[in-house]
Design a protein around this nucleic acid. Structure first.
Lengths: 345, 345
DNA sequence: ATCTGCGGGACAAAAAATGACCAGCCACAG
DNA sequence: CTGTGGCTGGTCATTTTTTGTCCCGCAGAT
């Protein structure tokens, strides 16, 4: 398998480019079907005409069909795209990358999707898909699933397939609310996942950036006590990973606070904890919800994050060794490996 | 493996064309290196310029290098061409064809090389290579190798690699001399193989088309008696397969004799025997050397022949069920399977 | 009714592939 | 020693393919 790919890359490199291009097109179509050639060309950053040529070809091959509202995958195309994605993973050596990451980071499982979410918005959706697939796999009857906020975890919610029969699980937000956008609140995401699974959910109506004494007074509320206890007994946690600086800003810290945090070595952030490059905790936001000490009771701690920009943050967070699963993308994965190699020398 | 090929054919069909074209070029170069682009273009029946473009590309990739006398394979190209040939076999479904032929003809082993020797002279060389490789594999110390004449078996001799240490084997002609061309006489071929292997050889100075009473008188010669006995104790036989009609003519039969032979059902010829479609013997040339009855004592009976034209002859000969190995080409293989399917209905 | 985004047609410009030469070089045969 | 033939590499006009752009009529949404 490996050799046949290197063989082809040696003897016909133009063609593998073509193949990847067509795969990208199929993938884009699959995500936003039905879609017109112009908007496709736009998001692919390719000329309209060239997209058109490829589209015609793919129609010819029976992988796409077009009606008046745009082009969409046929059943055959739907089937093919799965095979293709695996093949592209081979092409780019992503399977190798997954095992290297798994071994060097000491994780139980690593999924890397092709592409770089910094450059291509769809890659994030692809990560969401992968994470959702993994979630469905490990989820059991009676599971309690805790989720954080963030755009990436939001995509996980989008990717969870709508179920036509009820799942006996409970979805809860892992932490309180943060920022303004309702779409990426932990509460919203938890609810969305639960609805798709026809499962139940609880909400935690507490801001995440909250003063310590306020936490204490809130904890006395019996409602909040109960939901907090539920959250801490989760067996699955899906969380995003953020850059320390960006998260500090969006938490509303003053520039001085942020600077101090960074100076203290904070690189990554996850569920209210700031991590340094070596995985140690720099700062903890003492809000309600999941804390680091709870993680060891959670069977599946699933980190979802991608993009070259976030490589450092991801590396910091997973170095804490509480993660079991990482879902990321090619851009981040490559950068992480580079940083580890650089750091060793 | 199969699916990844169908996948590629679906998503990038031009890939396989390009790949085959480049493979053909490499193969041609490998056979007649060093070679110039013009003669290449000529034998490939492609424009000079297009050959040039491909050649430049292959040089770029480090598979070819050119000095003043022409272009030739680099070590890397040499290595790659083997992988490629296997890959092309997969592409054309030749591996499947081999097993189907093996099963339906009841043979021990079948090798099919890509192409059709009717159209491309090089395919014959390729068969020679394959047969030579097989020979080296089954040959043991003390082996006696009998070979017939013919251009195809001649290519086997050409393809046997020159050895730098002596092999303890004996090469003998399986039958007497036939026709004029010295290059394709059994004697010549036997000697050539032996020399390349640094082995010993014996010659049989007897014409193959000889009257029966002459055979008897010749048999009394002690020299000839001994070499004949040696030949009959061979454990490996490599023989060509010919069309009955063509062979009858080149044996010098009168038109009437030939017509009679064909009317009697003769289709194929091998080592002095004419075979009908169902494998039965139509006529035997009672010369000296290997006869059909000797074959059951020979471990490896290797038939080498290719080209669509010869499909019928090959089918007739191997239907006799004395063969153990068949080396042929894609054109003949396909035609044989077609004829068998046609004959069954 | 208007507006937007769709497929499909059309066409010129740009780029690439191709065919056809020529010059200079080297090896080899006579 | 010289002519001959085959080789590479350069060049250029021509053909073919690819690409960028615009327009049109249409269907569904607003």
């Amino acid at each position: 398998m490996r050799d046949i790919i290197t063989l082809q890359q040696k003897i016909a490199p133009e063609l593998i480019e073509l193949l990847e291009r067509r795969y990208t097109i199929l993938r884009h179509v699959s995500h936003s079907q039905p879609v017109g050639r112009r908007s496709l060309a736009n998001s692919l950053k390719l000329g309209e005409r060239i997209v058109r040529t490829e589209l015609d070809f793919l129609k010819e091959q029976g992988l796409l069909e077009s009606n008046m509202s745009g082009v969409k995958l046929t059943a055959e195309g739907e089937y093919l795209i799965h095979q293709l994605s695996d093949f592209v993973k081979h092409l780019r050596g992503i399977h190798e990358m997954e095992t290297r990451l798994r071994e060097r980071l000491g994780l139980g499982h690593v999924v890397v999707v092709p592409g770089n979410s910094d450059e291509d918005e769809l890659v994030k959706k692809e990560m969401g898909r992968a994470a959702a697939r993994y979630l469905l796999e490990v989820m059991r009857g009676g599971s309690i699933i805790a989720v954080t906020g963030g755009t990436t975890v939001g995509e996980v919610a989008n990717a969870v397939p709508v179920s036509h029969y009820p799942h006996n699980v409970l979805v809860v937000p892992a932490r309180g609310g943060l920022g303004e956008e309702v779409e990426i609140q932990a509460n919203t995401i938890a609810a969305k996942i639960a609805k798709k699974l026809m499962a139940s959910y609880r909400l935690l109506h507490v801001p995440d950036n909250i003063a310590e004494d306020a936490v204490k007074s809130l904890s006395k509320d019996p409602h909040i006590r109960e939901i907090t206890r539920t959250i801490k007994s989760a067996d699955i946690l899906i969380h995003g990973i953020g850059n320390a600086q960006e998260l500090s800003v969006s938490r509303g810290d003053s520039p001085e606070e942020t600077r101090q945090l960074i100076r203290a070595g904070a690189v990554g952030e996850a569920f209210g904890h700031y991590f340094a490059r070596d995985g140690t905790i720099v700062k903890t936001i003492h809000s309600l919800g999941v804390r680091l000490s709870d993680l060891k009771h959670i069977n599946h701690v699933i980190g979802v994050a991608g993009g070259r920009r976030k490589a450092g943050a991801i590396l910091a967070v997973v170095s804490n060794r509480h993660e079991t699963v990482l879902v990321t993308d090619e851009g981040a994965g490559r950068a992480i490996l580079e940083q580890m190699d650089g750091g060793e020398r």
